[in-house]
Amino acid sequence: MQLDYIWILLAVVLLIVELWAINVVLRSTGGWETKGLWLIILIFVPLFGLIAWALFGPKREMPEQRKS
């Protein structure tokens, strides 16, 4: 496997994890100020933002799922 393919694979994995983290932030119960700050950090500083969000971000405060 060439080195270029490894970097592409790592970039795709980072993108998928970023999108997942953004989804979790948007669905959290925090205020819009907190959500906006985390979104800015996650979008503009991807790797550091993910690490900071994992360490200091909201701890699974998800709204109740709607019962269908």
Results as ranks from 00 to 15, higher is better:
Ile8Arg: 15
Gly31Ser: 09
Phe56Ala: 08
Lys59Met: 03
Ser68Ile: 15
Val17Phe: 05
Lys59Tyr: 03
Leu50Thr: 02
Phe48Gln: 09
Ala52His: 06
Phe56Gly: 09
Leu39Tyr: 08
Ile16Ala: 07
Leu26Asp: 07
Ala21Lys: 05
Val45Phe: 06
Pro58Ile: 11
Ser28Tyr: 00
Ala52Gln: 07
Leu26Arg: 03
Ala11Asp: 04
Thr29Ser: 13
Glu33Ala: 11
Trp20Val: 11
Glu64Asn: 05
Leu14Cys: 10
Ile41Phe: 01
Val13Met: 13
Leu42Gly: 02
Leu19Cys: 04
Leu15Phe: 09
Lys67Asn: 04
Gly36Gln: 01
Ile22Val: 09
Gly36Pro: 08
Leu26Asn: 11
Gln2Phe: 08
Trp53Cys: 00
Leu37Asp: 02
Leu37Pro: 00
Thr34Cys: 03
Ile41Val: 14
Lys67Tyr: 01
Trp32His: 11
Ile41Met: 05
Tyr5Val: 15
Ile51Leu: 07
Gln65Cys: 04
Leu55Ala: 12
Gly49Arg: 03
Gly57Ala: 00
Val13Phe: 10
Val12Gln: 01
Val45Gln: 10
Glu61Ala: 02
Val25Phe: 03
Ser28Ala: 08
Ala11Val: 07
Leu3Met: 13
Arg66Asn: 05
Ile22Trp: 03
Ile43Gln: 09
Pro46Gly: 04
Tyr5Asp: 15
Gly31Thr: 12
Ala21Tyr: 03
Ile16Arg: 07
Leu10Trp: 08
Leu47Arg: 09
Gly31Phe: 01
Gly57Lys: 01
Arg60Val: 13
Arg60Gly: 10
Val13His: 01
Gly31Lys: 03
Gln65Tyr: 02
Trp32Asp: 08
Val17Ile: 14
Glu18Val: 14
Ser28Leu: 00
Ala21Glu: 07
Leu26Thr: 15
Leu10Lys: 15
Arg60His: 02
Arg27Phe: 02
Ile40Tyr: 01
Ser28Lys: 00
Met62Gln: 02
